[in-house]
Nucleic acid binder design. Structure first.
Lengths: 313, 313
DNA sequence: TTGTTTCATGAATATTTTTCACCAAGATGA
DNA sequence: TCATCTTGGTGAAAAATATTCATGAAACAA
């Protein structure tokens, strides 16, 4: 019986397990294979001679031992993050400015909580949202009017680096009694006779138009727009049209049965988000920590997120 | 720049560094080579782009970054220990009895603080010291009158397992104006004309007699004894004789200049301590934790301790 | 001066982690 | 019902990582 010591790696695994509810999802989150995690968990269980969770249920159910380790993981990983922030400040000071440009409406849902946390951690950094609507956030970046831009495509560009935030599925929402409500998967052609309700932004910035309808040469029969997500949901519920929204944004309404969600295309319409920084700022501790904070708070609170490879594929 | 994550291993290193004050001592404490630690520290420093301590001074001096990591290490390792105790309780319950038999007088110096901590951690375990003096603590163990015995030799025996506690140097103490006070190292022959002051126990249990004088066939000119360490020091200071005591027990008196300490034999007289358990109790969580607690509190508070190989060589 | 101790470093080695290539068991859907 | 997917587990192979070995340089003591 070889007694290998507990490492933070194990705690990161336990936390990922709790957040994703399954071994394979946790593996994706940690950029490991499911097999690697399976081995790691077995070792961890042997180490204490205790089962950590039941695997037969979904989401997996932690045993008392698992719960205890999870509690340890939560406090420990938070402390490590705090210490690493202190070290970063020690290295390059704690003051600075971070002007964030955002191009998507729903982004504010996760941006606000993340900003609150960030302000606690970096009180000396001036954090601002670049106000107004901007068609070209990266332009703001290179022209020096913003320091960090949230974008949905990582287009290779000099002087700009992209850090992946996360990916999520855009679902079609439709009234419960809509004629096509029973269709499990919607294809581009199904939109030809529908009224599409969206945020009032250029089509190039709507993933449904850009990635699905435009390539298929389909134009919706009519268009309507609204600034507010709830307003869009209300319109859909009262059969004024259909809309494509992030799954995590509509989940609460689905649960209340106002509308139903359907997959767009056989594999689903996956949207991606990246943080863009000027290369010169790429190593700026508080900028990187902002990105890390967005990732952490989003993964912890939004359902159904998935990771994005650092490569930015 | 490869970004390897922080692991508990690194924190254990930082703590050992703080407790021992040097890289090579810390390596011994962790059962690693000095080289391994040197590599590990370099990686840790590269990871945060900060120096952790100045090496040119003894004991080494932590930088602010090093201090921050040390603070992290202290809280984290304590939390891990607490969680692991909880897991052990989850596995085999938290109640039991632990009767400790001790054969050495000075042992009480480190035993009491360790027992206080242990009682906090295992309130449901009845912890007792087997009262009175016992010439054969292991006998008490096998006859069931004690559950854990502190001994100075790990003699291979059926049904008994030995867990190493620590090793320390026994030094000769002598008055400042004693004729031989200038001698850097005392050999067995030097004791022939001296009065030896010791605790009132059989010679077989005095390391000086057992390991040095007896093998050399030397008998001190006279003997005196006392139960109390301070009393022995007083006798030595007033030139009534010489005594051999653990370095950590006399260090405070040395600093006040009452007496001086000298090495016994060219390589020093090293005493070892082991905890003996019945094999049946070897996996008992609270018994193992008692041993761990003794080790931790002793290394943290007594100067000049060294580790003892698990083998028990 | 000569030894002795301490720490650093590159190359070699050992160990550990991770992946790969399977298998089995439950779901899910046709 | 049967195929098909997804999920999780395993042993063996591969990759990554940690550790040791064999040195050397610097500080310090005798």
């Amino acid at each position: 019986m070889k007694q290998s010591p507990l490492e933070l790696r194990h705690l990161r695994t336990v936390q990922a397990l709790a957040e994703t509810g399954s071994v394979s999802q946790a593996a994706k989150r940690l950029f490991l294979t499911q097999s690697a995690l399976s081995h790691q968990i077995r070792l961890l269980e042997e180490m204490y001679g205790l089962a950590l969770f039941e695997r037969k249920t979904v989401p997996l159910k932690f045993s008392p031992a698992g719960e205890r380790l999870l509690a340890l993981a939560r406090t420990m990983l938070a402390q490590v993050a705090a210490a690493e922030r202190d070290l970063a400040r020690l290295r390059q000071g704690d003051a600075g400015e971070l002007r964030v440009a955002v191009e998507c409406h729903t982004c504010f849902d996760w941006l606000m909580p993340a900003m609150d946390i960030f302000r606690l951690h970096w009180p000396a950094v001036e954090l601002d949202i670049v106000s107004g609507f901007h068609a070209d956030p990266v332009g703001l970046l290179v022209s020096g009017r913003a320091d960090l831009a949230v974008v949905s495509e990582a287009e290779e560009q000099d002087e700009v680096v992209y850090l992946p935030l996360f990916a999520y599925e855009m679902v079609l929402i439709v009234a419960r009694d809509h004629p096509l409500a029973g269709k499990r998967v919607w294809e581009a052609a199904d939109f030809a006779d529908e009224t599409l309700i969206s945020y009032p932004v250029p089509d190039a910035m709507l993933d449904l138009m850009r990635k699905v309808l435009k390539p298929a040469g389909v134009t919706p029969a009519a268009r309507r727009s609204s600034e507010l997500t709830v307003a869009i949901i209300q319109l859909v519920a009262s059969r004024r049209g259909v809309a494509a929204l992030p799954f995590w944004a509509v989940k609460p309404y689905l649960e209340r049965g106002y509308v139903v969600a359907r997959r767009i295309g056989e594999k689903g319409l996956i949207s991606e988000l990246y943080a863009a920084l000027r290369s010169a700022d790429a190593e700026l501790a508080y900028a990187r920590d902002f990105v890390a904070t967005v990732r952490e708070t989003s993964f912890a609170t939004l359902p159904g997120l998935s990771t994005l490879d650092p490569a930015g594929s």
